[in-house]
Amino acid sequence: MATVLIENLTKIYPPTLNHARQVQALGGLNMSITGNVFVAIVGPSGSGKTTLLNIVAGVERPTSGSVRALQEGVPAQIGYVFQEPRLLPWRTVVDNMLYVQDRKSDRSRREAEFYLQMVGLSEVADLYPSQLSAGMQQRVGIARAFLVNPDVLLLDEPFSHLDALTGRSLRDYLQRIWLQTRKTALFVTHDVTEAVELADRIIMLRPGGVAYDDIAITLPRPRRPADPAVRDVQDEVLRRFDAMGAAVRFGTAQAAR
């Protein structure tokens, strides 16, 4: 069972040529995620959502505090789905998937093909990314993240660059694979509807990267946005989101934990 422990995490970006002042992306964030849960992290721009995922993935260093992603006490294997697919354009789809694997064998190719099949792309394994649509490329990105058999799955607004219909279809794919694999998932989004549809728990961050609220979602899966129960939860989350916006505007927002 994977655990992600975030303790007093702070990230401050120093001034650059474009930003004369330093920017605080995360400000003393504390969070604990245990078990095979799907956690959505929502917040407005500048609340440090992507920075948080990058630190968990180990591609950015915190200014202070710590992040530990563990599986049975050892460092967890991370799978990352980015905002854009980030495929290597000179490799075919299947080779892109194999790139993130340590062993290269017939078995790993079969595994890659299995996950491609799960996202409905088994017939494009030997095509290049430029021959695929944006939605298909993102599906490859999702399949690639699952291929490494991740203990912790990080998803950074994976549907934000897609049109509504393609995003809808990708959420279905993601939900289906996640229900089969049940990985610990951290899903960053600014779309409350997406968060309610996919997550067991929603953590709200306010600007400056401070936790504001933590909401458990206990609705059965699979969820459809049109379901009345889903809509009720959405309304509740949106109400709290608006309250956070107002609180931030009037300077009364407090960290929830």
Partner: peptide
């Protein structure tokens, strides 16, 4: 640079 970050995140 994003491809390098992707590679690092997958432990390359």
């Amino acid at each position: 640079r994003r491809l390098i970050v992707m590679s690092e995140s997958f432990g390359r």
